[in-house]
Design a protein around this nucleic acid. Sequence first.
DNA 1: CTTTTATTCAACCGACAGGTTGAATTTATT
DNA 2: AATAAATTCAACCTGTCGGTTGAATAAAAG
Lengths: 132, 132
Amino acid sequence: MIESGARREAVSRAARLDAVFAALADPTRRAIIERLSRSAARVTDVAEPFPMSLNAVSKHIRVLEASGVVERRRKGRDHILTINASSLDEVDGWIEQTRRYWEVRLDAMERVLLELETERKSALKDRKHGSR
Amino acid sequence: MIESGARREAVSRAARLDAVFAALADPTRRAIIERLSRSAARVTDVAEPFPMSLNAVSKHIRVLEASGVVERRRKGRDHILTINASSLDEVDGWIEQTRRYWEVRLDAMERVLLELETERKSALKDRKHGSR
DNA sequence: CTTTTATTCAACCGACAGGTTGAATTTATT
DNA sequence: AATAAATTCAACCTGTCGGTTGAATAAAAG
C-alpha cells in the first residue's frame, strides 16, 4: 500500500519541495503535525483544539496529505492520521546541501573579494559616510 | 527608511518559521537562493536568468529578505545580496525536533495501542455479526 | 547637465489559499 | 429502520501571491 520513495517520480523534485515547504508554511498545519507527532488521531480529534471549523482543519489535513507529510487510513467512518517521517528527508536534504554551499564558499573568499572591490571604489570618492 | 537587518525580536518564533517556510515554498525563490549560494550578486544579476520581469524578481528578493534568508547592503546604486546562513537554523531545528518525536514515539507504542483499540471495538460488533 | 543604469514604488489583475456555511455520504448506534 | 456521528463535497467570500506595466528615485557615466 505504501509505495513510498523511489516509485513516485511522476512529480518533479521541485514540485515536491514546493508542496512540503508550503505545507509547513502554515502555523495551523505545523500545529497539526506536532499534534500528530504525539499520537495518531482522527480528524475530529485533530480539529478539536483549533478555533476554526472542522471543515477548515479537514482542508489543512488534505494539504498535508497531498504533500506526503501526513498519511491517512480509513477505519470505518474514522480516518486515522499519522505522520510520514521520511517525507521531510527531502526538505532536510535541500536545506543541508544549500547551507553547505554557503559555509564553504560564501564566508571566506567571495565576501572578501566583494569587500575589496567596493572598498576600492569608495576610496576614490570618500565622502562623509560614518555608518556603523 | 526601513531598518533592515536590525533587531526584530518582536516577531514570534512561529511567525519567523512561517516566513522562512513560505519563502522557501516558491521554486523561483529557491533558485535565487541557490544562485546566491555560489556568489553574492546584484539584483540585476540575480534576475538575469529568470523568464520574468526584473520587478518580479525584485519582489521575490524582498520576500527572502523579509524572511531573513537573504541580506542586502547598498553600494551606490547597486544592491548587493548575500545569504544569511544562520537563518535556516531555526527551520532546520524545527524539522529535526519534529522528526525525532515521530521516530521515537509513533512507530512503536502509539500505533499498536491504536490498533488494539480499533480491534476491541470491532470485536464488540463481532458478537452480533459475522467475522470479517 | 543630460543620459543611462540599477532599483524600487504604485496600481492593477488573475489565481489560489484559507476560511465560512450547508448539504451529501458513509458508517455506527439504538 | 431511524438517528447520530465522522467526514468530505460544493459553493462562496475575502485577502494574499505572483506576475505585469509604468512611473519615480538615486547614483554613475558621458
